[in-house]
Simulated scan of single mutants.
Amino acid sequence: MLAYVYKSLKKADTYVYLAGRDELARLPEPLRAQLGELRFVLEVALTPERRLAQEDPAVVRANLAARGFHIQFPPTVQDPMSDDWGTDA
C-alpha cells in the first residue's frame, strides 16, 4: 500500500498520510481548517516489513483503508521533573 505524506504548515510536527496523492478532500473540513496549508513531503510504501519512526504502520494502513487518511500528531513530551530519579531517602 502506498501512502502520501503531507506536512501541516500551521501545526508543528503534524503530518497527514493519504491513500491517494493530493486527495485532500478526504479530510473533514474542520480538520483541514485546523491543519492549514499542507505540503507534500513523501511517498512511502507501507509494507508489513516497513517500520515508521513514530507511528505503528499497521494502524496507519488500517486508517488509510477505512478512512483514506491518518493523522500523525507531535509526540508528547513527558515532564522530566515527574520521573522517579531514585534520590528520595
Rank of each mutant, 00 (worst) to 15 (best):
H70C: 10
L27H: 13
F73I: 00
E29H: 11
D84P: 00
R51M: 11
W85E: 00
A45Q: 12
V41A: 09
V41D: 08
Q54L: 11
Q54F: 12
F73D: 00
A45H: 10
L46R: 08
A65I: 04
L38F: 08
P48A: 05
Y17D: 07
V77T: 11
N63A: 14
R67C: 02
H70G: 04
H70P: 04
S82N: 01
T76V: 07
V5T: 09
V44Y: 05
A12C: 06
A58P: 02
E43K: 15
E49A: 13
M81F: 05
K7L: 12
L2E: 14
E49V: 02
E29T: 13
V44D: 02
R26S: 15
G20C: 12
D56M: 03
Y15S: 09
E37P: 04
T47W: 06
V44P: 03
A66H: 06
E55L: 08
L38G: 07
M81A: 11
A19P: 05
V44F: 02
P75E: 00
L18P: 08
A19Q: 14
M1I: 08
L24V: 11
F40W: 11
T87V: 11
Y6P: 02
D88M: 12
V59H: 04
D13A: 13
L52C: 06
F73G: 00
P30Y: 05
R50A: 13
L27K: 13
R39C: 03
Q72L: 08
G20K: 15
L27Y: 11
R39F: 02
A12R: 15
V60M: 02
L46V: 06
D88W: 09
R32D: 03
